[in-house]
């Protein structure tokens, strides 16, 4: 029975890949033209990334491979990577919906799983990934690998193929967005496109800020599973830090202590019910499972039906503007219930 089920799933997966391929080719969208590289080849190319390392190359990198989060940001500014590796299955990742991946080689769909042979075949000029600090002060641990890479050994093999630039994901949200944009511009993104996206971002931020100032709605961002609730610490996560800086009231029960998360066992879930709106991770427990936890079923936001999905959003101006508009909508329609 199991092999048969798997076979069917595999066939289904294959069919859907063909269907997707057919769709994208029949849609006839030409591959985005490579962004104009106003020949600075002679001058060489150099970039100092967030780890402080300066990367020098004989010419501006044309063939770029990126970790999914950074790839999304690059694509939003018109820089087309030749390869992407992700933490999740990219074919079904909703963030990539509407993005033509026909000319992009997918090198991995799970954390640390990067097809090194395919990567070498792509002959990239530069590889871009993220790096997460290990604490609130932003310390980068030289002994731990870049994000998306299994270990230092794998990282060294990747660095042997091409130089790696890392974007630091931590601290202030705005800094991270700017860092992604700066890298895109260095790789040839059109500054006018970046400026236009920034203008829409600034407008969305102003609206969100104004709405938040006139609202007393508290927003809780969480992930839940059988172990309990995981509450994001607003100051430690760049996106929530950005929202907090704009005046959005986020649940912040314990700003000190552990970095990034606080875990509340189900016995302690009652301590984390102060939010009027819950934004829940697409992974782990969803609304029906939350309602089944007797110690959390009475959470006012849950009872009032004010629980919304909290998908990962790329840290670029355009994606963040859209996410902020959605959050503004939640703040406008939600009722004060807690």
């Amino acid at each position: 029975m199991f092999p048969a089920t798997n076979l069917r799933l595999a066939v289904l997966a294959l069919l859907s890949v063909f269907a997707l391929a057919a769709c994208s080719s029949s849609a006839g969208t030409p591959a985005p033209s490579a962004t104009s590289s106003t020949g600075s080849a002679a001058a060489g190319w150099s970039y100092t990334d967030d780890t402080g390392a300066t990367i020098t190359l004989p010419a501006k990198p044309e063939r770029v491979v990126a970790f999914a989060d950074q790839a999304l940001s690059l694509i939003s500014y018109g820089v087309q990577p030749v390869g992407v590796f992700g933490r999740t299955d990219l074919a079904t990742d909703p963030r990539f919906a509407g993005i033509d991946l026909a000319n992009v080689k997918i090198l991995g769909n799970a954390y640390g799983e990067i097809d090194l042979e395919a990567l070498a075949e792509l002959a990239p000029d530069l590889i871009i990934t993220a790096v997460y600090p290990s604490d609130r002060k932003g310390t980068l641990d030289p002994k731990s690998p870049f994000y998306g890479m299994k270990d230092l050994e794998q990282q060294q093999k990747i660095e042997a193929i091409a130089k790696v630039a890392a974007v630091k994901v931590g601290g202030q949200g705005l800094t991270l967005i700017e860092s992604n944009a700066k890298l895109a511009v260095a790789l040839g993104a059109d500054q006018a496109k970046v400026d236009a996206d920034k203008a829409s971002f600034d407008a969305a931020a102003a609206t969100l800020s104004a709405t938040a100032k006139g609202s007393d709605i508290e927003v809780t961002q969480l992930y839940a599973d059988a172990d309990g609730l995981y509450l994001v610490k607003p100051e430690d996560e760049p996106q929530t830090q950005l929202y907090k800086s704009l005046g959005v009231k986020l649940t912040e029960l314990n700003p000190d202590g552990d970095y990034y998360w606080d875990i509340y066992s189900w016995e302690n879930a009652g301590k984390a019910m102060s939010g009027d709106v819950i934004m829940i991770s697409p992974e782990g427990f969803q609304i029906a499972d939350l309602k089944k936890q007797p110690t959390f079923a009475k959470a006012p936001a849950l009872v009032a039906g004010q629980v919304y999905p909290n998908p990962y959003t790329a840290m670029d101006y355009s994606a963040q503007a859209k996410a902020m508009d959605i959050l503004t909508g939640y703040l406008t329609t939600a009722k004060k219930v807690a």
């Binding site: 999740t88 299955d89 799970a110 599973d225 059988a226 172990d227 309990g228 992974e283 782990g284």
Partner: peptide
């Protein structure tokens, strides 16, 4: 190959009476 399966498995495989 599948993140949500990994999440489910991670929580499941430990064995727990919680939740």
């Amino acid at each position: 190959t599948n993140q949500s399966s990994l999440e489910a498995y991670r929580v499941w495989v430990v064995g727990s009476l919680s939740g």
